[in-house]
Design a protein around this nucleic acid. Structure first.
Lengths: 340, 340
DNA sequence: AATAGTCTTGCAAATGTTTTCATAAAAAAT
DNA sequence: ATTTTTTATGAAAACATTTGCAAGACTATT
């Protein structure tokens, strides 16, 4: 009664296991009559082939391992969705793991995915546990870093230049005349994306002679709720800044709500800019100005590159690419109050 | 140079493959000295055990298949995250597939996951392709439907009663005196959650003698952008309703933004209620009134039940449970204008 | 020092499938 | 009708691992 295997089906159809295998994998190699018999037996027995046995044969496992920091908010939803659509169209399934912004955990998960003999590996960002680099150096598995791009990256990568993202955001505020800006960022020690953006933003302001004081640098996790309450606290102080530069749109959305709650008019009294242009940002009122990260494109190209690397068997075949950022000016930023 | 296997490691350590296997799986069964030798050889060779071979032995594959409608918006992010955290703590990895609200695709994906010999299967909702029911009837795999709960369900299920959700939302609006209500829902043919909510809402209004006209029933996909623009169109008509009952918070968020855009004061002129209480809903201004679906609880209980079923090997062991809904009254709903 | 008992370890079988090679059957050519 | 060619099928090896069994190596007990 327990799950029928290929030899059970073969007996039922009165043929050899080899023939059953051929019906499944090379149907054209078997005579129509036999094929029908076998197909009937498969149908009747409810046979489902065991991919594990297949994978043991050096065949593809038809799985792609994907390790992301979190599933909890919108940040990676769009890339992953696009990536998944691309590869699943070719019959691949995603083994998805999330590490909660802990690179030690990321290492363990990566190892586990390799145990499953994923045909390829996708990671987010360029900063990883040394063990991760060792693993992908040793294992013959195509590996791709997404979201980030850097010319000198240790890994093939498809994504944006986060330093540029931080710079674009900062320069937009600078161009609007903002001098007193607060930076709302998460903890950056295990998050290279956030770190790059912040450093570039600080540099951009420094280049205009403005040093952003540390009490203008707020630490907050990626959470609309926590961002909102942190911003409320900060914006209630008498010397509030004229603009908020947020590490991503999750935080920026929280900031917009905070301003709304306090009745601070945006953008006339307070400008808010995010990074990412996540779903919903364009619809907010006021709509959020953001540095657009084309998640869709990243996911799709990543999918194609991975597929190509798997098909050709050449793990070095992955082409890195830098996806262009774009400043999307919307209603949440405006000229600094002091200039009017 | 190609990936070392267990016999390579065995040779390197000067022991038999069996001993290497034991070092990995039953370390206490091997003498400390030998163990160290083997561990060194594993380390040195960069050996990673092949789970496929393991799975072939009737062992666990240590994967759990999860099929969801979409990854693209927040809807399922929280459940999946909670579920994943729960099961990954026990060493399981998620094979995640999304079908884009197409039950035919869902069937194919389910089949594929079974080929991978997932140790358990999680689906969303109770409505499925007949093939899905056949598969899970034939395969000895614990299967659990999440998000929905119904007493007479064909599958073990952990979730909420979506009819109740629709009813609670409707009755809240009724209690506030709203008689002219619009329903903003997605296509319901392949989405039992949406269908149940809508039917129950219509019934609730009918019970008070109000029949909701079909031109008050708007069809819109789950997208903030599309919901917003559809609502803008509708709210601009001279005979706009006094309340909007939205199938979920994604749509409701779009509705709130639509009202903001048009300058319609919420809730004094227009009440908006959602279902789900997704991330961000509580932070909006005005904060969104919603029927809370405790995604976190659902994910965690689902995880525990699945783990129990896997460990005990008893697929019938999964206990269904109905998770309680809760009306969360916030700023987006208020007394109907005609009563003031 | 001998015996019994306890640990360690290796051998070999088993797992489910694919594929190469050989053979049998059918089709085509004479 | 016979031979040649082509096509379809089966037998068996291979894949990487685990585990029951048996034998060998210790340890403890007398």
């Amino acid at each position: 009664m327990s799950k029928p295997d290929i030899v059970f089906v073969a007996k039922l159809a009165g043929v050899s296991p080899a023939t059953v295998s051929r019906v499944i994998n090379h149907p054209d190699q078997v005579r129509a009559g036999t094929r029908r018999k076998v197909e009937l037996a498969i149908e009747k027995s409810g046979y489902i082939r065991n991919r594990a046995a297949l994978a043991m044969h050096g065949k593809r496992s038809a799985t792609i391992g994907v390790v992301i920091p979190t599933l909890a908010n919108t940040i990676f939803a769009e890339v992953i969705q696009a990536f998944n659509e691309t590869v699943s169209a070719q019959g691949y399934t995603m083994l998805l793991a999330s590490h909660g912004y802990d690179l030690e955990v990321e290492f363990k998960l990566t190892r586990k995915l390799l145990e499953h003999r994923v045909d390829a590996l996708v990671l987010v960002g360029l900063d990883h546990h040394p063990g991760v680099f060792r693993l992908i150096g040793e294992q013959p598995v195509p590996c791709l870093a997404i979201w980030n791009h850097a010319a000198d990256a240790a890994l093939p990568c498809i994504g944006v230049d986060n330093r540029e993202a931080g710079r674009i955001a900062a320069e937009h505020l600078i161009a609007l005349g903002h001098q007193d800006v607060a930076l709302i960022f998460p903890e950056t020690t295990e998050n290279d994306r956030a770190r790059d953006r912040m450093m570039a933003a600080l540099d951009a302001f420094r280049a205009t002679g403005t040093e952003i004081r540390t009490d203008r640098q707020i630490r907050v996790p990626y959470s609309v709720a926590q961002a909102k309450s942190a911003c409320i606290t900060m914006l209630q102080r008498p010397d509030r800044p004229s603009a908020l530069l947020c590490c991503n749109d999750v935080i920026a959305q929280g900031a917009v709500y905070a301003a709304a709650r306090l009745g601070i008019p945006v953008p006339s009294e307070l400008s808010i800019i995010g990074i990412g242009d996540f779903a919903g940002s364009a619809q907010m009122e006021p709509a959020l100005t953001s540095v657009r990260i084309p998640a869709q494109s990243i996911g799709v190209s990543a999918g194609h590159e991975i597929l190509r690397a798997i098909e050709t068997g050449d793990q070095a075949a992955i082409r890195s690419s830098r996806i262009d950022l774009e400043l999307v000016m919307r209603g949440s930023t405006g000229i600094a109050p002091r200039l009017r």
